[in-house]
Amino acid sequence: MKKAMKPPKTLNGVEHAAAVFRALPLLFPSSTMPPRKLGANSEALFHVLTTSEDPDGFLHQRPLSCPVVVVSEDNCMIAIGSTPVATFDSERFHEGLLYLMAYYYALHLTYPKCISTLLSVLQTEILQDSIHEGDSTPSYKKAIGEWKSFIE
């Protein structure tokens, strides 16, 4: 865990946050694989647009309809499905995961299975909000046990 959470020090703020966000689903893996079109589990959380990518085109071809942070050179956008709902400065990208959690809460959305363990751990350990015992999966119980032994 320590190695995955220590990206190179030469990264700028956005690159550093992206490296951490890419590592989080690996630290708290879910038992379900992401859709093939999605690629990595971290793509369920955020996507960094290339210079040739159109944000609207990306959102329409995305296989999941869960909230996502789309990062461009100028700003970040939170979209749900193919609908943009908020924008914020890319320098605040490190706060993007909390913004996503806020949309899950406010809209009572279900976590995608491919990142449900990560989001459940964030909910219980960062936001200090309990989850119903019926919602705790074996992968969540394993991840939370490993997390508790790591922080002790």
Score class of each variant (00 low, 15 high):
1 M>V: 13
2 K>G: 06
3 K>Y: 10
4 A>M: 13
4 A>F: 02
5 M>G: 02
7 P>F: 05
8 P>D: 10
12 N>P: 02
13 G>E: 10
13 G>Y: 01
14 V>T: 13
16 H>L: 11
17 A>I: 03
17 A>W: 05
20 V>R: 07
21 F>K: 01
21 F>Y: 15
21 F>L: 11
21 F>W: 03
23 A>T: 02
24 L>T: 01
24 L>D: 02
25 P>F: 03
26 L>Q: 10
26 L>W: 07
26 L>T: 11
27 L>Q: 07
31 S>C: 09
31 S>W: 08
31 S>F: 09
32 T>Q: 14
32 T>C: 12
34 P>A: 11
34 P>N: 07
34 P>F: 10
35 P>A: 14
37 K>V: 07
38 L>A: 08
38 L>P: 02
40 A>N: 04
40 A>D: 06
42 S>I: 07
42 S>H: 15
43 E>Q: 15
43 E>V: 15
46 F>T: 12
48 V>C: 14
51 T>C: 07
52 S>R: 12
52 S>P: 00
54 D>T: 14
54 D>I: 08
55 P>N: 13
56 D>M: 11
56 D>Q: 15
63 P>G: 10
64 L>C: 12
66 C>W: 02
67 P>K: 06
71 V>P: 01
71 V>W: 03
71 V>Y: 02
72 S>D: 14
72 S>K: 04
74 D>I: 07
74 D>S: 13
75 N>V: 00
77 M>F: 03
78 I>P: 02
82 S>K: 06
85 V>Y: 01
86 A>M: 10
86 A>L: 13
86 A>P: 00
88 F>T: 12
89 D>H: 09
89 D>Y: 01
89 D>K: 05
97 L>T: 09
99 Y>F: 08
100 L>F: 04
101 M>V: 03
103 Y>Q: 12
105 Y>A: 10
106 A>Q: 14
106 A>C: 08
108 H>K: 12
110 T>P: 00
111 Y>T: 05
113 K>H: 04
117 T>F: 05
118 L>G: 00
118 L>Q: 03
119 L>M: 11
119 L>D: 06
121 V>P: 00
123 Q>E: 14
123 Q>L: 02
124 T>L: 00
126 I>Q: 06
129 D>N: 13
129 D>K: 15
129 D>W: 11
131 I>Y: 03
131 I>A: 01
133 E>Q: 05
136 S>E: 12
136 S>Y: 01
136 S>I: 08
137 T>C: 07
137 T>L: 06
139 S>A: 15
139 S>K: 06
140 Y>D: 07
142 K>L: 15
142 K>N: 13
145 G>A: 15
146 E>Q: 15
147 W>H: 14
147 W>I: 08
148 K>P: 04
149 S>W: 04
150 F>R: 08
151 I>D: 02
